[in-house]
Simulated scan of single mutants.
Amino acid sequence: MKQEILEAVKKAKEQTKPRNFTQSIDVVINIKDLDVNKPENRFDEEVSLPNGRGKDVKIAFIADGELAVQAENAGADLIITKKELEDLGKDRKEAKKLANRHNFFVAQADMMPLVGRFLGPVLGPRKKMPKPVPASAKPEPILERLRSTVKVRIKDQPVIQTLVGTQEMDEELIAGNIEAVLSILDRNLEKGRSQIKSMYIKTTMGPVVRVI
């Protein structure tokens, strides 16, 4: 299947018109023989793409004290302190903006009850509740991993759509990322990737190209 993936990625890149921004490349996978009404058939996982996302990822760190300082030094896009967390709880509009602007949230474990109280109503529905980390955690490896992470989920339809790179990335690198996404199917589906009904590659604004 690797050859088919490579050819489809190449075709998707060739067929997209030039835009004044770097377009993302997504893989769309339709799954057969899967009853999504059964909770055990739904999943929501994070995949670390071996060749990166090719795009900037915005990460907010909710922390105080030493962890906040280290997270800032490590390049987190936003630091939210305990006081700022409480302020966001009173300003739902700002909280929503912040939730939409950032891809991932990480929180100091002992601040999670406050996060749930003040940001939970905004982050929960967006599937962006923070990953708790101890106050002694080292932010660098956490940020590095999240910068190459995408979500792979099946919810109310037997379809997966996720980012696997950008149009500027080499086809081989994108194919490697798609392979990482397919390995999630092997783990979560009874018959693994043999349950793929069809698979497509598409750029943000370009046409859909069928792989299988």
Rank of each mutant, 00 (worst) to 15 (best):
M1L: 12
V9D: 07
A12M: 08
A12Y: 05
K13Y: 03
E14H: 09
E14D: 14
E14L: 12
Q15G: 01
K17P: 11
R19H: 14
Q23G: 10
D26P: 07
D26W: 07
D26K: 09
V27C: 12
N30K: 14
K38Y: 12
P39Q: 15
N41H: 13
R42W: 01
D44N: 15
E45K: 15
L49Q: 09
P50G: 06
P50Y: 08
R53N: 09
G54V: 05
A60R: 08
I62M: 10
L67G: 08
Q70V: 06
A74L: 11
D77I: 06
I79L: 02
I80T: 09
L85F: 03
G89A: 08
K90Y: 12
R92S: 09
K93A: 15
A95H: 05
N100S: 13
H102S: 11
F105L: 02
V106I: 14
V115C: 09
F118Q: 14
F118P: 04
V122F: 09
K127S: 14
K128M: 02
K131N: 14
V133L: 05
P134Q: 09
K138L: 11
E140M: 12
P141V: 12
E144T: 15
R145M: 13
L146Y: 02
T149H: 06
R153F: 13
T166S: 05
E171S: 12
E171H: 10
L173G: 01
I174D: 02
I174L: 05
A175R: 10
I178T: 04
A180Y: 09
L185E: 01
R187T: 13
R193D: 13
S194P: 00
Q195A: 08
I196A: 00
S198R: 13
T203Q: 05
M205G: 01
G206R: 03
V209W: 00
V209Y: 06
V211H: 10
I212T: 09
I212H: 06
